[in-house]
């Protein structure tokens, strides 16, 4: 019986989700970028770091020594389209690993804070306050100043800066759930703390966390691109969109396309995740529905 109710609620959820035009649009765009990222080596005409001698900043649709460049080439003679395609791997990868890291660490800390309360809660919330005393981009920059700029350090820095979102949300959810009857019953039946936290309470807190994960993706991609733009993110020749944009700044007058396209990719991806997250929230939370 349990199975049928679950499938029907899943079905209901998908139906509502499909009817939410914004969420569907966001989902389609995200799926598109994910597909591009997964099949980058099939789609990209060249490798992201292949340099074509003397083919500097060619305009779109140009041909040079029997090589055809749909979007032209950058300032050192690499195919722009290929770099953008491989860049989707980098940006979505950063988003994915950041969300996984800050979700698991922040989620567990928030779960412990909400569940145990008292001094554990105070300690964890003070860590949260410290991270929140600086704006997240600045906090990430501070971490980079110690670790040094690289792709892995970008992920670490952004994950730490994003921790408070997950910690606070999880804590609030757990605090709302932990005194409900089903939790009290499982406690009287002798469930251990770990069992209570992860098996009893956690599944009932997931809906807003899933929404936050989608929004966290967009924050992470934006923050990482900002670090890349400032020259504190992925090191060259990694085709990170923010870094590409910043490298192309000197040529803003002669080849504006080198600046416009990477930024457009960042914008569309981030927007898609935000629309998707908002849509998810509307479908999950019937109270907010129009």
């Amino acid at each position: 019986m349990n199975d049928t109710t679950e499938t029907s609620s899943l079905k209901e959820f998908s139906l509502q989700f499909i009817h939410h035009k914004g969420a569907l649009l966001g989902f389609i765009i995200i799926a598109f970028f994910m597909l591009v990222a997964l099949c980058a080596n099939l789609l990209a005409p060249y490798a992201s770091d292949t340099i074509f001698q003397n083919a500097f900043r060619l305009p779109p649709f140009s041909e040079y020594t029997h090589n055809y460049f749909i979007l032209g080439t950058d300032d050192v003679g690499r195919d722009l389209l290929s770099r953008l395609i491989y860049g989707s791997r980098i940006s979505l990868g950063i988003g994915f690993f950041t969300v996984v890291l800050s979700l698991s660490i922040g989620g567990i800390l928030g779960l412990a804070a909400g569940y145990f309360g008292g001094s554990i809660d105070s300690l964890i919330m003070r860590i949260n306050d410290i991270i929140m005393a600086l704006p997240s981009v600045l906090f990430a920059i501070v971490i980079i100043s110690v670790l040094g700029p690289s792709l892995a350090n970008t992920i670490i820095a952004v994950s730490v800066a994003e921790l408070p979102h997950f910690m606070r949300l999880m804590r609030a959810q757990v605090m709302a759930e932990k005194n409900k009857n089903y939790v009290i019953i499982s406690r009287t039946m002798g469930a251990s703390h770990l069992r209570q936290m992860f098996t009893t309470i956690l599944p009932n807190c997931l809906a807003p966390i899933i929404v936050q994960s989608a929004l966290g993706f967009s924050d992470a991609i934006l923050c990482a691109a900002a670090l890349g733009f400032l020259g504190l993110g992925a090191e060259p020749p990694i085709p990170e969109w923010g870094t590409m944009l910043s490298d192309a700044r000197p040529f803003i007058e002669s080849s504006p396309i080198l600046v416009t396209l990477p930024g457009l990719c960042i914008f569309i991806t981030v927007l898609a995740f935000n629309i998707f997250g908002d849509g998810l929230r509307d479908t999950f939370d019937p109270k907010l529905k129009r």
Partner: peptide, 13 residues
């Protein structure tokens, strides 16, 4: 959702 570093450059262009 705007990457403002890009937005600034677009406005400059």
């Amino acid at each position: 959702s705007m990457p403002i570093f890009w937005w600034g450059l677009v406005l400059i262009i």
